[in-house]
Design a protein around this nucleic acid. Structure first.
Length: 582
RNA sequence: GCGAGCUUAGUUCAAUGGCAGAACGCCAGCCUUCCAAGCUGGCCACACGGGUUCGAUUCCCGUAGCUCGCUCCA
């Protein structure tokens, strides 16, 4: 642990020393949760983003790009659910000082059967109050409100505007001095403070009048802008489902405790793709079946008979391939498939790709199958249709006999009710589907640029023992970054700097390379020292111009990882680096 | 947000109620024909604010930041 600790510390020191990452506002003492990327850091981030964009958008015909505004209509966050879920009230125990999300107090009590016991009492505050007194005595005999249960007057406090389950309610107990407490502390039975709102979204004011009515929010994710512009992009891009919209950009979350270097920041950058697919029912009508995911399923090319499950798996594989290309080796990250009870209610599946950071194994990116939840929400809240008209689907439905159609309806109805949906909703969906309309489902790969940068740096960092000129062991610090990601692609050195002819030739070669890639010039100190400087920032190639260069035009190419040198002509050199950095 | 500890140069560390040091790094010069060589010179620090004191980097208080634990991480 302490060894891991120092791994992160040395990396942090390197990042500062060499200009990758600085603390924000450092001259004023720093500002928690915010970070600045220096000369090398911003190149690193740019390379990560360029590589992602190239893989996700440029080299695909079925994905379009978007660069939306950070501040959007507040109604978007109402529709997405962020205004509600990001504003979860928190409650603290006055006795043991533990801070808990108010609704999670329920989780802690659930083991004791609280929720189940309360469910039948819903809608009858009197019964709940009585239950509370008795139960409270057992759970928290020392709580004042419970001791005085005869005089305490429990009342209900809704957590959501429209409470549907017991969990949507807090139970407040009036204490003798008139204050109210939620359920007693599950840990020590102490008295809990009243739940206070904790809004995790940054609030600002739009327009010059500083009035709460003008409140707006900095986006907590880039995804919602994609849903909000989905119809515009669908109309203007000549795309058809299945297709995707990708966006990279800053997002903001008012984290309670930003920690672990840049891992959890209050301002961060995301790379998100929303890939819109046909609902499985549409695939079935069009293809007569929905392909099943098996270990043998060929995921190299999308197929018309893929349902959400294969599409989801496809994107997991696509993302893993990209991680490998970016330089995270096989085995350095793990897939965590969320269990059914961990999934958000609208999610069909979610895979976290986790990396073993020095401070623990943490999520690098998530690939979620989000059903049609988001677009449906926006259709409901905006009143604008989010349906896609699928002409082949309409024709396919037309070709069905009445018998076939009835069978299809019955099967779909059974599926939906089995998933807890109402018959009415299923029928509404079927009516539209058979006319060729549906709201697309979504597969969402969502990655954090800053986390990716940190993971790549952690993975690349190494210290190697190598003998120096005087026969002693030296420590060589190297960032084994992929050439695609490395902030500096090549460095050019004149072997000596006091020979004008050699110097001029080196400058000429440097200028040639500089026009293609980020290239570094270094003429100071012994040649070995210059190599080590580049090792420390992960420059894959060092080019030394020596006296032979003046004769035959070749240079010495020194490889960062192997430290091997070879002689190479300039055209060969350009071709070699070009192949490595793309 | 709570509790504990910490904060001296770019980095890693010293010392001190009375001029704050080293190593490495960095910069300049000399030298140098391939892996942190050598010589000379140079830049750079007591996190910030207040208090006690003749005098505070040192003692006290506050703020910020960092680390650890609790908590949070849709």
């Amino acid at each position: 642990m302490s060894e891991n600790k120092s791994t992160l510390d040395t990396l942090v020191a390197l990042c500062k020393r060499r200009g990758f990452i600085f603390q924000s506002s450092e001259i004023y003492g720093g500002f928690a949760g915010f970070w600045d990327y220096g000369p090398l850091g911003c190149e690193l981030k740019r390379n990560i983003k360029d590589s992602w964009w190239k893989a996700t958008v440029r080299t695909r015909e079925d994905v379009e790009g978007l660069d939306a505004s950070i501040i959007m209509h507040p109604a978007i966050w109402k529709a997405s659910g962020h205004l509600d879920t990001f504003a979860d009230p928190m409650s603290m125990c006055r006795n043991c000082k533990k801070l808990m999300r108010a609704d999670q107090i329920w989780d802690l009590f659930a083991e004791n059967g609280l929720e189940a016991a309360l469910a039948p009492l819903l809608g009858d505050p009197g019964k709940i109050a009585n239950w509370c007194k008795g139960r409270g005595r057992a759970l928290a005999p020392n709580l004042d409100a419970v001791k005085n249960a005869e005089t305490a007057l429990p009342r209900l406090f809704p957590r959501l505007a429209e409470p549907k389950t017991a969990r949507d309610l807090y139970i407040l107990l009036a204490t003798p001095d008139g204050k109210e407490s939620v359920l007693p502390c599950p840990h020590c039975g102490g008295e809990m403070t009243e739940p206070r709102p904790f809004n995790l979204m940054f609030r600002t004011v739009v327009g010059p009048i500083d009035d709460p009515a003008n409140a707006a929010y900095l986006r907590p994710e880039t995804a919602q802008a994609i849903f909000a512009q989905y119809t515009n992009i669908l109309k203007t891009s000549r795309q058809a489902v299945p297709f995707g919209i990708a966006q990279m950009g800053k997002s903001f979350r008012n984290e309670v405790t930003p920690r672990n270097y840049t891992f959890r920041s209050r301002e961060f950058e995301q790379m998100e793709l929303e890939f819109f697919i046909k609902p499985d029912e549409a695939v079935e009508l069009l293809c007569g079946h929905v392909a099943r995911l098996t270990p043998e399923t060929d995921l190299s090319q999308p197929q018309p008979d893929w349902g959400w499950e294969i599409w989801h798996k496809y994107w997991v594989e696509q993302r893993k391939n990209w991680l490998l290309k970016a330089g995270l080796p096989q085995g350095s990250f793990v897939e965590y498939w969320q269990k059914p009870d961990e999934l958000a209610h609208y999610a069909r599946a979610c895979v976290d790709i986790e990396y073993a950071f020095p401070f623990g194994t943490q999520e690098l990116e998530g690939i979620a199958a989000r059903s049609d939840f988001d677009l449906t929400q926006h259709q409901t809240h905006s009143g604008k249709p989010m349906e896609f008209f699928d002409e082949p689907l309409k024709l396919a439905a037309k070709r069905l006999s009445d018998e076939q159609k009835a069978a299809f309806r019955a099967k779909t109805l059974a599926d939906w009710t089995a998933r807890g949906k109402s018959e009415q909703a299923a029928n509404r969906f079927l009516d539209r589907l058979l006319e060729g309309y549906y709201i697309p489902h979504v597969i969402e790969p969502s990655a954090g640029v800053d986390r990716m940068a940190l993971a790549l740096l952690c993975n690349a960092y190494s210290e190697e023992q190598i003998p120096n000129d005087s026969g002693k062991e030296d420590v060589r610090t190297v960032l084994h970054l992929s050439p695609i990601i490395a902030p500096v692609k090549a460095a050019v050195f004149p072997l000596v700097k006091n020979k004008p002819e050699l110097y001029a030739k080196a400058r000429e070669i440097f200028k040639t390379l500089q026009s293609r890639w980020n290239t570094y010039w270094d003429e100071s100190g012994a040649i070995g020292r210059r190599y080590r400087r580049q090792d420390e920032i992960g420059t894959p190639y060092c080019i030394t111009v020596d006296f032979q260069t003046l004769e035959d035009g070749t240079v010495t190419l020194r490889d960062r990882d192997t430290m091997q040198q070879s002689r190479i002509s300039i055209p060969e050199l350009v071709a070699k680096i070009d192949a490595a950095v793309n």
